[in-house]
Design a protein around this nucleic acid. Structure first.
Lengths: 378, 378
DNA sequence: ACATCTTAGTTCAGACCCTCACATAAGCCG
DNA sequence: CGGCTTATGTGAGGGTCTGAACTAAGATGT
C-alpha cells in the first residue's frame, strides 16, 4: 500500500510518504528500507533543502519486474511486454484466420508470444511478475478462468488451465473490454477518480463502475451490462431479443443500421467514421440516446468522472464530445451532473493488452512483496 | 467484526466463531473474554455434547445498550427507542400541522422525544449508543448534516448542529428513504444478501445499491436516484423537467394520474390501493414499466436480491409480485436475471425510525468497543 | 569558520494483535 | 473410573506500527 502510493504519486520523499499514507515516520523509514534492500524501489535524486536536510526522492524501479499482457481479438493474438512504468518493451502479433479461433491455437500463440517478447527484450522469465490475458466473452471466477465467448464459438473453455500447462508464471484472465476499462481507469482518463464509470461503446455496449476505488462486480461478476438497459420501452428490437435497448441505438451496428448502411461485409467498421462525419439526424439521434443513457447512469451512480471508451465511443467522442455533454446534462439531474466530468478515453481501442498487464500490476501492488502469486482474476 | 458475526448469526459457540471468522481459537477465546468482561455479550446456554465438552453459546446482550431512531415525516415526528435486538421499547409521536415544518420545531420534537422514550422505558441516557434521524431530502456529509428538503421548504438546514446543541449523544442523520432501505437490508428481506438492491417506490422512486456488503454512495453521496432514469425517450413529462422518467410512470402520483384520479386533495394516497385493486390497463402498464426498470437494474448491477419497498411499491408488490417478476424477466438478460431473486420488503412503510436506529447500530458494530462516537452519517 | 537552526531520516524499546503449541475443562463411553 | 473426544484457556513469540530520542545534512548569521 505504501508501494501503491509511491507507484501512483510519482517520486516522493519518505517525509511526504508519512503525510500521504498517514503512517509514522518510523514505519515509513523501515518499510522503505526493506523495499530498497529488495530493489523494488530506488532513490531518484534529491529536492533542494529549504533550510534543512534535503529530501531524498524514492520511486518504484521500473525494471524491478516486467508484466506481460495478451490481447485475444477477432483477427489476432497480440502479446506485449511492459516494464513497471507500463512502457512497452516488446510486442509480437499472430494473425488469426477468420473462424479459426480454436482455444488450443490461441493458447499456443500466447505461450509462444511470451517466449518471443522475453527474448526480444532480453528479459528472463524470472523477472516477470505475471501474465494478463484479455479475452472476448464472459470469464468465470477461479483459477480455471472458464471462458464463454459466442463470437469465437467458445463454450466453457478452461483458458487458465490451457495456459497453466505451458508456463509457471502467475496468470490473470479477464474480459477484454473490462481490461480496457481497467487500463483507462489506471493509466488513462480515469486516473485519480474514486467514483468513475468507464463506458465502452463498440459493437456491444458496457460499463465498468467504480465506487470509492472498488469495482462493482455484482454477485456473479457480470455487472456492467449497460447495453441492454431499455431506453425506449417498446422501441427498436435488439439482438438480445428485447426491444428498445440502448445498444440497439448507440451500438456500432445500430448506428450503421439506422443510417441504412449494411453491416455484414468485412470492413464495415470503417463505415462508422464516415457516417459520423456525414452528420445528419442519425448522428444527432445517436448523441441524444447516448445522452439519455449517460444521464441515467449519472443519476443512479453519482460518479465524479465518466470516461467514454470503446472504438465506436471514441469515434463519437472525438467528434462530438461537447454535444454528448449537453445531451447528458439534459437527461440528468443538475446536482449529480455537476459532480460528474465527462471525458474521452485516452488510450485508444488498442489498450486491451495494456489493461491485461494491469491485472498483474494490481496484484503486484496488493500483495505483500515476495509472496507467490498463482491466481486468476475473475 | 467478531461482534458483527455474533450479532447477525445469532448465538454461536466460540468454536463456531473460529470457523466463521477465520480467526484462531486463541484469538476468539481472548476476544470473547474481553467482550464478556465488558458485558457486551453474554452466555446463552449450551449445546449437547457429541462426545466432547459441550459448546457454550454466546450472544450479544440486547440490554447492553439502546438505540434511538427518529422519523421526520410529512405529518409527524416519531421517536422510537430500541434495544440491541431492535425490539421497540418505547415510542412517542408529535403531530406536525401542514406547512409547519420549521427546523427548530422538528429539532425540539426530536429532543423532547428522546427524553420521553428514555423515561418511558426506564433507560438512562448513558446506556444509549446514539440517535439516528431519518429526514426527507438530501443530507450532506459531515457532522453538520446539512439537509435540503424541498417538500419541507428546508434549504441548507444544519440538522446535526441543531440537535447537537440539545444532546450529547452521538448523532446520525440520513435521508429517510435510505434509512428505510437500510432497515430492509439489515432486518428485512435484504438480510444475508451481499449484493442487494433495495428499490423504493413511493411518491418518488429511488434505489439503494449494495456491492459486496458495501453501500454504493457515489462521489457526493447522492447515488440511488433511480426515478429519473429515462425509460421512454421523449415520453411523459416528469416533475424533474425531463421526459420519460421512470418516476413519471410508476411513481404514486403517476399511477393515479394515468388512471385519471386527481392527486391534489388530502387522502389521495388511499386512492392508489383502489386503482390497483380495480386493475385494468393502467395497472398492467405500471407493472410493465416497473419490469423495464428492474430489468435494467438487474443487467447493470447483477444483484443477488432485489427488495421492493416504499409504500406504493409495497401496495404493488402485495398484489402483483409474480407479474412483476415476469415483467423483470422479460426485460433482463437471462443470466443476471437468474441470479437475482425479487422479493417484497417485509418491514412495511413505517420502518424509517428503525432504519435510522440502524445507522447507530452499524456504527456500534464497526467501532472498536469503548471508543467515543460523535459523527454524523452522510 | 563555526555555532545554531531547521528539516529529514534512523534506531530502538515497547504496545498491540494475532497465531502456534500446549495445557486444561467437561462431557461421553466402555 | 480411566480413556477418548471436543471445547476453551494460556503463554511465548512473530509481525506491525508508534513515540521518543538520536543522527544526518544542509542553510544562516555573525
Amino acid at each position: 500500500m505504501l508501494l501503491r502510493t509511491l507507484y501512483f504519486d510519482g517520486p516522493l520523499s519518505r517525509n511526504e510518504l508519512t503525510k500521504v499514507t498517514g503512517l509514522s515516520a518510523a514505519t515509513v523509514s523501515s518499510m522503505t528500507g526493506d523495499l530498497l534492500a529488495e530493489q523494488i524501489i530506488v532513490e531518484a535524486g534529491q529536492v533542494d533543502s529549504d533550510g534543512g536536510r534535503p529530501r531524498v526522492l524514492l520511486r518504484v524501479d521500473p525494471s524491478y519486474g516486467y508484466l506481460i499482457g495478451a490481447d485475444v481479438a477477432e483477427t489476432h493474438v497480440r502479446v506485449e511486454l511492459f516494464d513497471l512504468d507500463m512502457t512497452e518493451r516488446a510486442r509480437v502479433e499472430y494473425a488469426l484466420r477468420p473462424a479459426r479461433h480454436e482455444p488450443e491455437l490461441v493458447a499456443r500463440h500466447i505461450l509462444a508470444g511470451i517466449d518471443v517478447v522475453l527474448a526480444d527484450a532480453g528479459v528472463s522469465a524470472g523477472q516477470v511478475l505475471g501474465v494478463g490475458v484479455g479475452v472476448p466473452g464472459i470469464v468465470g471466477p477461479g483459477p480455471e478462468a472458464v471462458v464463454d465467448a459466442k463470437t469465437f464459438g467458445w463454450d466453457a473453455v478452461p483458458m487458465g488451465a490451457l495456459l497453466r500447462s505451458g508456463t509457471q508464471l502467475p496468470l490473470f484472465v479477464d474480459n477484454g473490454a473490462k481490461t480496457m476499462g481497467q487500463a483507462e481507469l489506471w493509466f488513462g482518463s480515469g486516473r485519480g477518480a474514486g467514483n468513475a464509470v468507464i463506458v465502452l461503446v463498440g459493437s456491444g455496449v458496457g460499463a465498468a463502475m467504480i465506487n470509492d476505488g472498488i469495482a462493482f462486480r455484482g454477485v456473479s461478476s457480470s455487472a456492467g451490462e449497460w447495453g441492454h438497459t431499455k431506453i425506449v420501452a417498446g422501441g427498436r428490437s435488439c439482438r438480445c431479443g428485447g426491444r428498445g435497448c440502448l445498444e440497439a441505438y448507440i451500438g456500432a451496428e445500430a448506428i450503421l443500421d439506422r443510417a441504412g448502411v449494411p453491416t455484414g461485409k468485412a470492413g464495415w467498421m470503417e463505415e462508422v467514421s464516415q457516417v459520423l462525419d456525414a452528420g445528419g439526424p442519425v448522428v444527432d439521434e445517436t448523441i441524444y440516446y447516448l445522452g439519455v443513457g449517460l444521464g441515467s447512469l449519472i443519476n443512479l451512480l453519482n460518479p465524479d468522472r465518466i470516461v467514454i471508451g470503446g472504438w465506436a465511443g471514441l469515434l463519437l467522442g472525438e467528434r462530438l464530445l461537447p454535444q454528448i455533454r449537453t445531451a447528458a446534462a439534459e437527461n440528468a439531474l443538475a446536482q449529480p451532473y455537476a459532480a460528474a466530468s465527462i471525458v474521452l478515453g485516452r488510450l485508444g481501442p488498442d489498450a486491451v493488452a495494456l489493461g491485461a498487464a494491469t491485472l498483474v500490476l494490481e496484484d503486484f501492488l496488493n500483495e505483500t512483496p515476495l509472496t507467490s502469486r498463482v491466481t486468476a482474476a475473475g
